[in-house]
Amino acid sequence: MGNFFKRVTIGLPYLWLCLLFLLPFLIVLRVSFSEPVLAMPPFAPQFDLSEGWQAFTDAVSRFTLYNFQFVLEDSLYTNAYLSSLRIALISTFLTLVIGFPLAYGMSRAPMTIRPMLLMLVILPFWTSFLIRVYAWIGILKPEGLMNQFLMGAGIISTPLRIYNTEIAVYIGIVYSYLPFMVLPIYATLEKMDYSYVEAARDLGCSALGAFWKITARLALPGVLAGCFLVFIPAIGEFVIPELLGGSRTLMIGKTLWSEFFNNRDWPVASTVAIILLAILVVPIVLFQNAQARAAEAGR
């Protein structure tokens, strides 16, 4: 009885993973091996599992790797990948630079106000992500709030062109993903015993030395978690570059969208998605390893 229960509890996450990850993944993978046709659904070969094994093997024999060749050889796609990678890396770095001091400050704040600070970090989630990104349009556009303020204050005379540039994308990503950076770092710093820092000071470290050797080092698992939590969604981000980045900002999420909905080329869109996943597998595996090691060390 106990054994059965144990198996069910272990099995459930796997079932979840199969239904919500593996199955969709297999469908997308299958589409990426197909050819586009003007039909509904817009790809071939099609097969019906009720027609038996023969129909299935027939269909598989007509699968093609053409889409992969196409995507990997066309510089439009490779440029989009590289540009996404660059934008994701830079925005992860910026988020870290802003997020770490925030998390550190929160962890050193008096016990009584910490819950409130935590609340403030989470508060933006109470509004729709889309609305918050739209709000940035209002702030950043040439006649927007920021330019009005800066010009009103006499700091600049012509409006800054930020809206519809990559800078706007960085602002959008840093703003949207900041909590994902702050929360894991805060969690590690908050449970860190401050007497480690005192001991390091006592043993001859300056304040800065103790910060690097103790605080920063012990926060590393949180920093890694935060970086991956920002980097992974940022690389495939669609909404932010679409709304803030303008037509010149190239990101793979946008490419994917236009293949699916503008060109209705599902096979190429699926191929783009599969390659993106392949690129992401590397950092995801690294992340998993880092998490496992952190769990090991924290035991």
């Binding site: 015993d193 043993l203 012990l218």
Partner: peptide, 20 residues
């Protein structure tokens, strides 16, 4: 005078050994 400039060392009641 900051702690690292004092010719003093302290053994902490909580030990404060660096976990890493």
């Amino acid at each position: 005078v900051p702690p690292h400039k004092r010719p003093v060392n302290m053994m902490f009641q909580s030990y404060a050994l660096f976990p890493h």
